[in-house]
Simulated scan of single mutants.
Amino acid sequence: MPKIFVHRHTTLPPINTLKVFLAVMQCGTLRNAARKLEITPQAVGHHMKLLERFLQVDLFKRKANVMTPTEKAILLLHFVRSGFSELERGIALVVSRGGGSSAVGHKRLGDPW
């Protein structure tokens, strides 16, 4: 894949693109991932190309309508799955602590955390 410059304001690709990547890897095909996410297979393909451009690596070998994950895709899967798992844990923890709204110390939005 040729190197394509993608202007990044962040070091992470869009979270929805990572969600689509995870679905593709779990479901095995663009079509099955599209069904699971209730979007079109074309949208799934767009997200995969966006992710590859963002990372500037090939995540899939494409041949005659078949996509096979590369070693880099399998490596990325580990971290994406782990990242979403951490997010779910954090959200569950926040929700389980109830509706408290007390501020922490003297921190304000925009202050370094």
Rank of each mutant, 00 (worst) to 15 (best):
G28S: 09
E52S: 10
C27I: 03
S101P: 01
R31K: 09
G98F: 04
E86P: 00
T17P: 00
A103V: 10
S85F: 15
E38D: 11
D111S: 06
V6M: 08
G105V: 08
R31W: 03
F5P: 05
H46P: 00
F60I: 11
Q56W: 03
K107R: 15
W113H: 11
T40G: 09
R81A: 11
T68R: 14
K61E: 15
K49A: 10
L12R: 12
T70P: 02
V66L: 14
T10W: 08
R62N: 14
K49L: 11
T68Q: 08
P13S: 06
L12K: 10
P13N: 01
A92K: 13
N16E: 15
H78S: 05
G45N: 11
A103G: 04
I39P: 00
R35F: 11
P41E: 01
V80T: 02
M25G: 08
T40S: 14
H47Q: 12
T70I: 13
Q26R: 14
L37D: 01
A43D: 06
F21T: 00
L59R: 05
A43L: 07
A33T: 00
S102M: 09
L12N: 11
L55Y: 06
I4W: 05
A33L: 00
L75G: 07
G90Y: 08
S85Y: 13
T17V: 11
V95K: 14
P14T: 03
L12Y: 12
L87C: 13
V6S: 08
C27V: 01
L51N: 01
H9P: 03
A43G: 02
V80L: 02
V80N: 06
S82G: 13
A103D: 06
L75T: 14
S102A: 13
K19W: 03
T11C: 05
G100L: 14
L37K: 03
G98C: 09
V95R: 12
G83N: 07
M25S: 10
M48C: 07
K49D: 05
L22T: 00
R53L: 10
Q56P: 00
A92G: 09
P14Q: 05
T29L: 01
T11N: 07
M25A: 09
L12C: 08
V95A: 14
A64W: 12
L76H: 00
R81D: 11
L55I: 07
S96W: 06
A43M: 03
R81T: 14
K63L: 15
G90A: 09
C27G: 07
G83S: 13
V57T: 10
P69A: 09
